[in-house]
Design a protein around this nucleic acid. Structure first.
Length: 483
RNA sequence: UCCUCAGUAGCUCAGUUGGUUAGAGCAUCUGACUGUUAAUCAGAGGGUCACUGGUUCAAGUCCAGUCUGAGGAGCCA
């Protein structure tokens, strides 16, 4: 019965010559007891169904409401009306699922994103979220395609891990021990995790990088694409407690190779969406332009969405060192006029305002900043040679994007056993637990590098959505775990 | 976690100096119309003013606390 269904996307490509088709989908609007705008999620565009007077009895007509699921058999004809080139003259309409218009929350009118977030189970049915999630899918596909074409292996790193090795923020604990205070204790009163499911303290992963490095030292080039979890109490438009990350890791790569790959990668996946999701991007572009109009002149974006993406794809990213970045900030009018809230000097961890200045005011394009002070970066990053004492740097690189900030963080990894060991001791990393990681440096160690890209931030960048909660189907944030 | 702002009809909002029966647009329902495009026109229904406590003759309005949401900061991807 359902196999005859034609999707609206294909249907709209047809040349109308009265051919009979079967379409199914959800009613967006029903005007004049005569015109149904039907959407099936295959495209942002609706197909118009024309219901001739007398085709349906009154009771059935009343059941064609916003949100109802229907099956239509009819003929494809050229449209007399202005909004569309073709339409379907219905021969029969079957109600597959009723939708009580008095109770259905999605009305044929504009809704705020905040309201739609509260009904995230239904927001897929709106134009905006339809476009966002089709693009999210396209990006996912493009990412796998990019790496597959380059011979990278996709590695599934574990979601439950035993160490918060990277020190990347608070973790969610994983345990089967009771939480009512009756958990087994050690002599000193602390919880005895020997009794726990895994026989040790475990948590949800904050990154698959360390395991990724192990795979890279066998396969050469690998990437991970999976969920990660951070129990940080972050309440911003750029943070989620559960988010997806892409982490390529490459043997025989230095920091320059790493930057080249990251730049090519970002340009590739954006190009893919520009080619395959034109309608969705056009819709979001218009939506954003409309929103910009509401803002005062001085807060408006310089570029439209599509313009911005085109610019990123067609221009080389700016590359500077951390030291150069600090010099630019120190010599900036903003600094001289004391516009920065936080002070600037060599050694600081740059604040949002500094990164924004570099990306949005100074260069006005994506910027790759490299060679950060060793003191403010992770233990596994490779120490650069020949730096004076107190000015040591590591081969790290961050890609900063306009409007979002850090979108990629990566580095060449410390492959020298002795140096790594010393760094781990400095950072108080428990060596016993990390023996497996050190083995990669004991046996056939090799220069290697990699980076991590926050998937949702990438989706934000491509769709122009300003809140990260609107680019993941069901957002997990502090005090919110609905659906 | 910190700072700022907000919470009034299904949605978006107005509500004056504390004062009598809390309003509008859209949505919904009823009717009309029948080539509409967020259809149009006429009418109707719809409220625990976030919650708890306080001040007062009187609180949507003032005060305190709590909860929730938004924006910014920190942390980061």
């Amino acid at each position: 019965m359902f196999s005859k269904r034609i999707k609206v996307k294909e249907l709209l490509q047809l040349t109308p010559n009265e051919q009979e088709v079967t379409v199914m989908g959800w009613v967006r609007t029903f005007r004049n007891n005569q015109f149904i705008a039907l959407n099936d999620g295959s495209t942002n565009n609706n197909i118009q169904i024309v219901v001739a007077l007398g085709l349906l009895d009154d009771a059935t007509l009343k059941r064609i409401t916003t949100g109802a699921a229907i099956k239509v058999i009819g003929n494809v004809i050229p449209s007399v009306g202005k909004g569309q080139s073709l339409e379907i003259k219905a021969n029969s309409i079957e109600i597959l699922g009723d939708s009580d218009a008095e109770k259905y929350p999605l009305q044929p009118k504009k809704h705020s994103l905040e309201f739609l977030r509260e009904i995230a189970h239904l927001r897929f049915r709106t134009n905006t979220f339809g476009a966002v999630f089709r693009i999210r899918h396209a990006l996912t596909f493009a990412i796998h395609q990019f790496f597959n074409d380059k011979g990278f292996l996709n590695i599934h790193t574990p979601i439950i891990t035993a160490s918060d090795a990277e020190g990347a923020g608070e973790t969610f604990r994983v345990t089967t021990l009771p939480i009512d205070g009756t958990a087994p204790r050690n002599a000193d009163g602390s919880i005895n995790f020997n009794e726990d499911f895994f026989g040790k303290s475990t948590n949800l992963t904050v990154s698959g990088q360390l395991e990724g490095e192990l795979a890279a030292t066998a396969f050469g080039n690998i990437y991970t694409f999976g969920p990660t979890f951070r129990a940080e109490n972050s309440n911003t438009t750029r943070h989620l407690a559960e988010f997806w990350m892409i982490e390529p890791e490459m043997a025989f790569y230095d920091i320059e190779d790493n930057m080249d790959l990251a730049e090519e990668f970002i340009q590739y996946i954006i190009s893919y969406v520009m080619e395959h999701n034109k309608e969705d991007l056009t819709f979001l572009d218009a939506r954003l332009a409309e929103e910009e109009k509401q803002k005062p002149q001085n807060e408006r974006q310089e570029f439209g969405l599509i313009e911005k993406l085109k610019f990123v794809v067609e221009n080389k990213f700016e590359r500077i060192t951390y030291t150069q970045a600090i010099d630019i900030l120190l010599n900036s009018p903003a600094y001289k006029k004391k516009k920065f809230k936080y002070d600037v000097k060599w050694g600081i961890d740059m604040q949002s305002e500094h990164e924004r200045y570099l990306v949005e005011k100074h260069f006005k394009k994506p910027v790759i900043v490299s060679n950060y002070p060793a003191a403010i970066k992770a233990f596994y990053m490779r120490l650069n040679d020949g730096e004076e004492a107190g000015k040591e740097t590591v081969a790290a690189m961050d890609i900063l994007a306009p409007g979002i900030g850090e979108i990629v963080g990566g580095s060449q990894r410390e492959e020298r056993y002795d140096v790594l060991l010393k760094r781990m001791q400095q950072f108080n990393i428990p060596l016993q637990e990390m023996n497996w990681y050190l083995d990669s440096r004991r046996f056939g160690t090799v220069p290697h590098a990699g980076f991590g890209l926050g998937f949702e931030r990438m989706v934000q960048f491509v769709t122009g959505m300003t809140n990260i909660r609107d680019v993941i189907p069901f957002a997990r944030t502090p005090k919110n775990c609905e659906f």
